[in-house]
Design a binder for these strands. Sequence first.
DNA 1: AAATCGGGGGC
DNA 2: GCCCCAGATTT
Length: 364
Amino acid sequence: MEAAARDLLAWYDRHRRVLPWRAAPGASADPYVVWLSEIMLQQTTVAAVAPRFAAFLDRFPDVATLAEAPWEEVAKAWAGLGYYARARNLHEAAKAVVARGGFPKDEAGLRSLPGVGPYTAAAVAAIAFGRPAVPVDGNVERVMARLHAVRETLPAAKRALAAAARAFGATRAAQARPGDFAQALFDLGATICTPRRPACALCPLTHTCRARAEGLAEALPAKSAKAARPERHGLAFWLEDRTGAVLLRRRAPEGLLGGMLELPGTPWRDEPWPFAEARAHAPAEAGWEEIGRVRHVFTHFALDLAVVAARVEALPSPGVQREAVLEAGLPAVMAKAARLALAHSSGRSRERSTSSGRSRPRSS
DNA sequence: AAATCGGGGGC
DNA sequence: GCCCCAGATTT
């Protein structure tokens, strides 16, 4: 293990990824930057985070700025990134950090912040504070499962894989560079020890790896079967006044898409909504017209969302100008519905101007 | 241990 | 279409 840890760190020194949130070799890491990046990267790929990270840091350059910001601003900056409880916890944690005068510097203290679990506490402790902790993410689980040819299926194998990672991190080489050791495991998992077609020929641990020796690398880690994804149905209302203002509302702070903006709509349920039933949830009496449907896949269900539109004299409450709706900070499913409505009405105005009326509004 | 909680990239 | 991603929290 000792030699393997040295080989891994030597590989990292040559092949480390250059990422926006990473300090240059030898430079000290900003705990705020490390923490923010770790939260953003929870269950989210580097490719998805990279373009969003700089913008968020630009808007909230330090923990005090984030703590003082209103929730609406944080939600707007996070919109589209998913798992919105992360943004709520991020905001609350920033307030807690400011209140206590700075970031906790050890795992236990970090773990007390909302949204910081075992993984993130270990990652920040190691990367930002040089503490000898080993964060165990999906990459590390995969590398450990292969290194030791662990055949037990995930998630049952989590405990054993974490123990293996802890033992690896207890080597002298790892203890000398905890942050680099953790990130070396991430980079190895992301670029060499990949879920499919691992590049074992390029791996610094290829001679230590038991799965490699047994021809099992690509088959590990094994996973237990996952549940089927049910279909649910909803209906959303695009209501616009004569000035082009569109009605939006904010969802309840907890639960799915908690605290985020949305189009008014019905609840989401297993059965489709006949319009006669859905209209009881409409924000106004109007000549509603179905303009299309949006399909969006969440983690544990797929949503079929019908979108209906209407125009009224005055909205029941202040709206957002239609040109600004896509910049207001909508979650992805609502951005899809908004794009559908915007395309539909711009298409209609084009048709009116060229008097090639093709659509036959189905009034309801 | 299982369920909840998003969205997208890659194949 | 499926798998996976620098997971946390609640039940």
